[in-house]
Nucleic acid binder design. Structure first.
Length: 890
DNA sequence: CGATTTCCTG
DNA sequence: CAGGAAATCG
């Protein structure tokens, strides 16, 4: 950073500032003194500047590198951080595989036309995947070197070539695999499928990451980052992390551990200093975290291992249950499908051959998991809208599904030692049905599709829960470094995510966290009619508001049934999601994008993502934000968030930053939904509508660059929950400006007490709100005075000679400009007093300019002083929370 | 040092 | 309109 420029810039600024920076409330004498000092400062400036230069050079040249580099590496670092933290969060959960499997499988079906290999790879990979995953978990348990188990053949191209960003996943991969296709030994096939799997998983995870660019990840990532930064020496932690990431992820794909690993060095060296400096300058939370860092690392490692184990167990459990469900499913459908069995077999061979080692149970079982109930409903009323829409597509999928299962069945017999009989029987039944399931399979297809959706979302839900919980724990560790690993953090975890009343999510050791999931599945397992029960419950836990139930977003069923037309929501959201995930995802790993006009189809690929993303901001803000944001003035969800206070107690010192961000973010976000705030209230009757709207909102917001992290957190704050400062508050403030240009902070507190009503527990938050309000008024004034000056000068240019000629009426241009700014909708009757004040101001400016006072650097100060005395009382109405409704009718 | 205000930039 | 910086005051 050119210090010269900087210096000059500073110089210029200083000169300017010295002149004009005069607050209205400042003492009169200060002006004089200031000016006296100015001259002195002018002389001193050179030295002063050089001092500043020194500072700058500290920032920029700390390590002999340029600032530019520093910036770049910062960016890189951020990216890496994200990726890393993401992996951190997700990787240990072997369940992630499930997602990819599900997606993959559904894709594979449609991929019939696709290169046979693609399809086959996808399908066949499933089984080995599981095995590998298991093996991986085992090995990782022991040696914590998952990467080894994940690339069984070790034949993957060294990741060295891959850059940070997005190693081209497929091209390499496919070619690579295809080259191996020739040797069809079982082993090779295994590897092949593995690669495919990995590729797909990578893609899926990409999706996930995109979706969950989330608060969670982000915030925790940030903390971790700090840790890492402070810790550069002990790379152990990173290494571990990288390993776990690589272990479950495609190591040679998007998240290449080695690239991650390679980065830190440069990071630490080049950026490190500059970054640290900067951070120190801004906020000094580094030291605190440093203290407990090693402990944290250790505990986290342990935790990770624990979680891994738990997850594995959970996975197995799920598999069992799914098998059971499968059975039931087929029993139910036996009768229906029998009539239809004719075709469906035409393409059997092509897949059959390929799917030899597909021992994947979970894929199929999961698919049918949690769908029983759904599918029953479907049987009654569901078909019409679905089955008629795109029979071919569904049919294909259905067939593929069946076929796949049949194949699995076959495979199972080979390696099914541990699998048990029931499953095999079930699969056999399936097989039969697969043979049968053909021509008339619309129903079946539809059902299957639905089930797939459900299953996917459910699994995703579980997965997310699995990984988000641990993540949070980690975050808490950073936030409250004093807390011991498991217990306190997890308890806080539960409190933030699931208020006591709902109990089901208990004290939560890492174990019990996952145990909960298993429990839910068990419920399903024993034939409970509501497979989604557990997820729903969790949803409840998060306060009705937060996570739109998968069911709701499902197949558009929820929304439709609710009777509320939800025309845009999903159609809007879909493209966004798709875009976000990048081409690879949409093209390969996801099922073919459903035709837009297919209401029922939308959810299918989406649901996975939708259902996924919301949970990610389930515990977005471990801390104060949770409590605050979810205060719901509307009171529509009485149960609410008792968690607020609790969380607050555990809030870390730097919660301030978060809250601040949140405030502004919320405003931003709200402005996105903006203007319709009032309407949202009315819509609240329909939760579904609510959910989808919020969803799309969040999705839209997530497109908005850096904000997305925060935005994802509380998408609802913008639309429905008015915590913090909402657009309405802004509007109110603007209207208040018509009465008072210089409100005291106390006044603001009074008039915006509703904003903080809940936040009183969080002083910092309150302060933020207040200063935010102050800032608003400051901005208002700025605009106001700019307009005044502008029009005054304009008047002078127009030849106006006397201030008396200047009047400000409601039709005056000046007023229109102001009104446009503060009262855009013109739905508020501006008090006459404001016109008078404006007129006075204008004349003051006019006179001052005419008198040539504007040569004086602080010439405006006098005007400010005058104007600040013209404040009038703000009507009591403004104190009412509903003031807008009352005011705007006028 | 914190609060407040203005200026500047995006 | 927000963020940042600087100036100023108590």
């Amino acid at each position: 950073m050119p210090d010269h420029d900087n210096a000059t810039l500073l110089l210029a600024r200083q000169t300017k500032r010295r002149r004009v920076d005069i607050g209205v409330k400042r003492t009169v004498g200060s002006v004089i003194f200031t000016r006296a000092r100015e001259t002195l400062l002018d002389r001193m400036n050179p030295t002063h500047c050089s001092d500043q230069d020194g500072d700058c050079s500290l920032i920029g040249h700390g390590h002999g590198s340029t600032n530019g580099d520093g910036e770049k590496s910062n960016v890189l670092r951020k990216l890496l951080k994200r990726a890393n933290s993401y992996e951190d969060a997700i990787m240990p959960f072997s369940g992630a595989t499930i997602i990819s499997q599900l997606l993959k499988s559904s894709m594979g079906k449609n991929g019939g036309s696709d290169s046979g290999f693609q399809g086959s790879g996808a399908l066949s990979s499933g089984g080995s995947e599981i095995h590998n995953e298991d093996a991986c978990s085992n090995s990782s348990r022991d040696q914590d070197s998952p990467s080894d188990c994940l690339s069984p053949g070790h034949h993957l191209p060294p990741p060295t070539s891959s850059s940070f960003g997005r190693p081209q996943p497929n091209s390499n991969h496919n070619s690579h695999t295809s080259s191996q296709t020739l040797s069809l030994s079982t082993f090779d096939l295994d590897r092949l499928s593995d690669e495919h799997l990995r590729a797909k998983r990578a893609r899926v995870e990409n999706i996930i990451r995109g979706m969950s660019h989330s608060p969670l990840v982000r915030s925790s990532g940030g903390d971790q980052d700090n840790l890492r930064e402070s810790e550069n020496g002990h790379r152990g932690d990173r290494g571990e992390r990288g390993d776990s990431g690589g272990g479950h992820n495609a190591s040679n794909h998007n998240d290449c551990p080695s690239s991650l690993l390679s980065s830190p060095g440069s990071r630490g060296g080049v950026v490190g200093v500059g970054e640290v400096y900067r951070e120190n300058k801004r906020k000094q939370r580094l030291p605190q975290q440093q203290h407990s860092f090693t402990q944290l690392v250790c505990s986290r490692q342990e935790q990770r291992q624990e979680e891994r184990r738990q997850l594995k167990l959970q996975l197995e459990d799920m598999q069992k249950q799914l098998r059971q469900l499968q059975e039931k499913f087929y029993q139910i459908y036996d009768s229906e499908t029998e009539e239809e069995e004719d075709n469906g077999e035409g393409r059997e061979p092509e897949r059959g051959g390929e799917r030899e080692e597909d021992g994947n149970l979970s894929e199929d079982s999961i698919r049918s998991d949690g769908l029983e109930e759904r599918h029953r409903d479907r049987g009654r009323h569901g078909h019409d809208d679905l089955s008629d829409l795109d029979p071919g597509l569904f049919l294909d999928r259905a067939r593929a599904l069946l076929r796949e299962q049949a194949l699995i069945d076959g495979d199972l017999e080979e390696d099914a030692d541990s699998r048990g009989e029931e499953e095999r029987n079930g699969e056999r039944g399936m097989k039969r049905r697969a043979a049968a399931g053909g021509g008339g399979g619309r129903q079946l297809a539809e059902t299957l599709k639905q089930e797939l959706n459900c299953a996917v979302s459910q699994v995703v839900d579980t997965v997310v829960k699995g990984f988000s919980s641990p993540k949070q724990t980690a975050t808490h560790h950073h936030g409250c470094h004093s807390s011991t690993p498991a217990a306190p953090s997890s308890s806080s975890n539960s409190s933030s995510s699931c208020p006591p009343p709902f109990g089901p999510l208990p004290p939560l050791t890492p174990d019990s966290r996952f145990g909960g999931g298993t429990l839910g599945l068990n419920l399903n397992g024993d034939g409970s009619p509501t497979p989604n029960y557990h997820s729903n419950q969790r949803l409840h836990c998060f306060g009705d508001v937060i996570v739109p139930s998968p069911l709701d977003s499902f197949g558009g069923l929820g929304g439709r049934l609710s009777g509320v037309p939800t025309p845009n929501d999903q159609t809007e959201a879909l493209p966004l999601v798709v875009r976000k995930n990048g081409p690879e995802n949409t093209n390969h790993s996801l099922p073919p994008p459903p035709p837009p006009h297919h209401p029922s189809l939308h959810p299918s690929p989406l649901t996975a993502s939708l259902g996924f993303s919301p949970p990610s901001f389930r515990h977005p803000f471990p801390l104060p934000l949770m409590g605050y944001p979810f205060q719901n003035p509307l009171g529509s969800h009485g149960g609410g968030y008792p968690s607020g206070p609790k969380d607050h107690h555990q809030s870390s010192p730097d919660s301030m930053d978060i809250t601040r961000e949140a405030v502004s973010l919320r405003t931003k976000m709200a402005s996105l939904g903006g203007g319709h705030m009032g309407h949202h209230h009315h819509r609240q009757s329909s939760p579904n509508q609510h959910g989808s709207e919020s969803l799309s909102l969040s999705l839209i917001k997530s497109e908005c660059g850096d904000l997305q992290d925060m935005a994802d957190i509380s998408p609802y704050s913008g639309s429905t929950i008015q915590e913090g400062l909402s657009p309405n508050h802004l509007k109110k403030a603007k209207l208040m400006f018509f009465y008072t240009r210089y409100p005291s902070s106390n006044m603001l507190k009074m008039f915006f007490s509703d904003v903080k009503s809940n936040g009183k527990q969080i002083l910092k938050f309150n302060r933020c709100i207040t200063s935010q309000l102050i800032k608003w008024f400051s901005n208002f004034r700025e605009f106001y005075y700019i307009q005044m000056e502008k029009f005054a000068r304009q008047a002078i240019n127009d030849g106006v000679t006397g201030a008396e000629e200047l009047t400000v009426g409601r039709d005056a241009e000046l007023f229109r400009a102001l009104n446009m700014h503060y009262n855009k909708a013109n739905d508020f009757e501006v008090p006459d007093r404001f016109l008078e004040v404006a007129q006075v101001t204008l004349r003051e400016f006019f006179n001052a300019i005419v008198a040539g006072k504007d040569a004086d650097p602080s010439w405006k100060k006098a005007i400010y002083k005058v104007i600040c005395k013209l404040d009038s009382e703000v009507p009591e109405v403004f104190k009412s929370p509903n003031c807008l409704q009352e005011l705007l009718r006028d």
